Amino acid sequence: MDVDLVALGVAAGAACLAYAMAAAKVVKQYERGVVFRLGRLRDRVREPGFTMIVPVVDRLHKVNLQIVTMPVPAQEGITRDNVTVRVDAVVYFKVVDAADAIVRVEDYRFAVSQMAQTSLRSIIGKSELDDLLSNREKLNQGLELMIDSPALGWGVSVDRVEIKDVSLPETMKRSMARQAEADRERRARVINADAELQASKKLAEAARQMSETPAALQLRLLQTVMAVAAEKNSTLVLPIPVELLRFLERGSDPTREEEFHHEPHSVKPPLNTPVTNATAVPAMPDLPMPVVPESPAALSDPAHGGHESLDDGRV
């Protein structure tokens, strides 16, 4: 009798332990528990931690509330300006209502994926190629709104949507490269023309300044010669002004320099002005200059234009 009681107690204890193990559940911090009792949804969602359910009667479904990163497969479409492109994107979403995510939709992950693909195709058809390449922020916001509107009824909130890559045909890439090259060349020509205009204005201003002081032109010429002569790999042909030659000639003749310093500087009349109260002086003919021989023997040589000896008595 005692043995039967002990066996019964052991069996009851084992049954209680099995019941407790079946009824005890643990919900993690990033999860929420949705309980169905005999197929009916319980109003209270189980919070993280230890919880108990009725075995066989209750069913606990755990829903992950973490943000899910879902890649959207590349979708091929035609833009509004008739360009064929392939666009792929990434969707970030999370569950905000665990009960709706279980009850309202069969598989919320698959539903969000299909909605993202259809919305991406729709946004491609409504946009132009330039918007897909340069105005992605606006397209991302529009795509997020298109996905988030039906997803709210599923207990899912779309955090953000990003267009990841836009694939273009090779012909379109070459056309865009030529367009960019032409635009760069146009900008280079405009900048070069602007530089030429500014340089011409500065040169005109410098020419007006040099016209007031002619010596500045000579100094500029010497500076240019020095700059070119620094290379030492070219031959320079330097034009010398006539005024410089006259100044050097006057400086080399001391008699003319003395006359220049001592004679009074009078204003000479113009060439075509008649001179009054002056005696006309006949013009002197141009006489050949005698050639001075290097030796006395050359005096008797008629080729040098010299005289014969005095012994002959003839000149």
Rank of each mutant, 00 (worst) to 15 (best):
I163E: 04
V34I: 12
V45N: 04
P285A: 07
D183M: 08
P241H: 05
V26H: 10
N140M: 14
V237R: 06
K201Q: 15
A204K: 08
P48M: 04
G77K: 04
S252M: 13
A23E: 02
P269G: 12
E181F: 01
T79S: 07
D81T: 12
L299Q: 05
V91K: 03
A182N: 03
N64A: 10
A111P: 00
P169V: 00
L271M: 04
P264S: 14
R208W: 02
V190Q: 15
A297N: 08
Q114C: 04
N277F: 11
E257D: 09
K94I: 00
T224M: 06
L65Y: 02
V190W: 02
F36E: 05
E31R: 02
A297F: 07
T69C: 04
T79F: 03
D81K: 04
T84Q: 10
E231W: 01
A195H: 10
D253G: 02
D311K: 07
A204W: 03
A283N: 07
D4A: 15
D58Q: 11
S252G: 01
T213F: 01
L132Q: 09
G153H: 08
F36Y: 15
L145E: 14
Y19N: 02
E231G: 04
N272K: 09
P48L: 05
Q179W: 01
R80H: 08
L133N: 08
V275M: 10
V161K: 05
V90R: 14
A298T: 00
I102H: 03
E47R: 14
A182G: 00
A23K: 03
I67H: 04
I78W: 07
D4Q: 14
G155T: 13
L133W: 07
P274M: 06
E308P: 11
E47V: 12
L299H: 08
E308L: 10
R220Y: 01
R86I: 09
E308N: 03
Q198P: 00
G313K: 05
Y92H: 15
R160M: 11
A278N: 02
G153C: 00
T171C: 00
I191E: 14
E257T: 11
V27D: 06
E162A: 13
A89T: 10
S234E: 09
L145Y: 02
S119L: 06
E243F: 05
V35Y: 08
N192E: 15
V292S: 02
R109Q: 13
A206H: 03
E47K: 11
H61I: 13
N82A: 13
T118P: 01
G9D: 12
E259V: 12
G306E: 12
Q117S: 14
V35K: 01
P296N: 01
R187A: 11
E243R: 02
L217C: 06
D159A: 13
V225Y: 09
A207W: 00
V68M: 05
S134W: 08
V315R: 13
R256D: 08
M52C: 14
K62P: 01
L132V: 12
L217V: 13
N272T: 14
Q223C: 00
V315G: 07
A12S: 10
A18N: 01
G33F: 06
V72R: 06
A204M: 10
N135M: 09
E249W: 01
L248S: 12
D88W: 03
I147P: 04
R187M: 09
T213Q: 08
R80C: 06
F110A: 13
L5G: 10
P269R: 15
K138D: 14
V103H: 03
G153K: 11
L287T: 06
F36R: 09
H307M: 09
A74Q: 11
N272V: 09
D311S: 09
L120I: 02
